[in-house]
């Protein structure tokens, strides 16, 4: 029991070997943001190992899915590889494995080939764009800060308008409160001013 467990653990911490590191390297260099395998894989340490989302931990059913995904050479085949995350699976579905393998020599073309329509985390920034910018495609609070800000500003415009209105109204109120106090404390001096 302990031995199997230890074996599991040694797999678990082996980590950091990756399947197609060309894309990760490109994204990292292009964006200047450090990234890891969690961009496309289920596990941040890549597919090799024995923890969750790694090849060493798959059930027979999951292995079938993995094999199905591995043979999805043409585009348009929906796959559910257990070692990939939704973005990884979608890349293979959209462009097909053949094209994907070709792109290893030109990782910068992946964005173009994958296209800018899909936005899996609906944070307003297309997956391909997030790939270029080194941000997470499946986390809606992660993205280029400026773009995220503008997108959310549009999403929450009603709330933004309400709070701006509230602030204006509050300002109007406080200003008049100030004037009111000023006026009432001036009572004495005004009486002296109009003799």
């Amino acid at each position: 029991m302990l031995n199997t467990f230890l074996l599991l653990l040694t797999f678990l911490i082996a980590g950091s070997s990756f399947a197609y590191p060309e894309f990760q390297r490109f994204s990292q260099n292009n964006s200047g943001r450090p990234i890891n395998c969690a961009m496309c894989h289920a596990n941040g340490d890549g597919p090799e190992g024995a923890s969750r989302g790694q090849i060493g931990s798959l059930t027979p059913d999951e292995l079938n899915k993995l094999n199905a995904a591995r043979s999805a050479f043409a585009p348009g085949v929906p796959i559910q590889s257990p070692i990939l995350n939704a973005f990884g699976n979608n890349i293979i579905t959209v462009i097909g494995k053949t094209k994907f393998l070709e792109l290893r020599a030109h990782p910068e073309q992946l964005a173009e080939v994958y296209g800018y329509q899909s936005d899996l985390d609906s944070d307003g920034i297309a997956d391909a764009q997030e790939y270029l910018e080194g941000t997470h495609t499946l986390n809606n609070v992660h993205g280029n800060p400026m773009k995220l800000f503008l997108h959310n500003l549009k999403t929450f415009r009603l709330h933004v308008i309400l709070i701006v209105l509230a602030t204006i109204a509050g300002f109007y109120g406080f200003s008049h409160l100030l004037n009111g106090f000023a006026a009432s404390s001036n009572t004495k001096s005004s009486v002296e001013r109009y003799p």
Binding site: A169, Y172, G173, H176, G180, T187
Partner: peptide, 14 residues
């Protein structure tokens, strides 16, 4: 000053 306070009350309640 009452006029101001009235406006203030308006603004603040809004």
């Amino acid at each position: 000053s009452r006029r101001h306070f009235l406006k203030a009350a308006f603004g603040l309640s809004a």
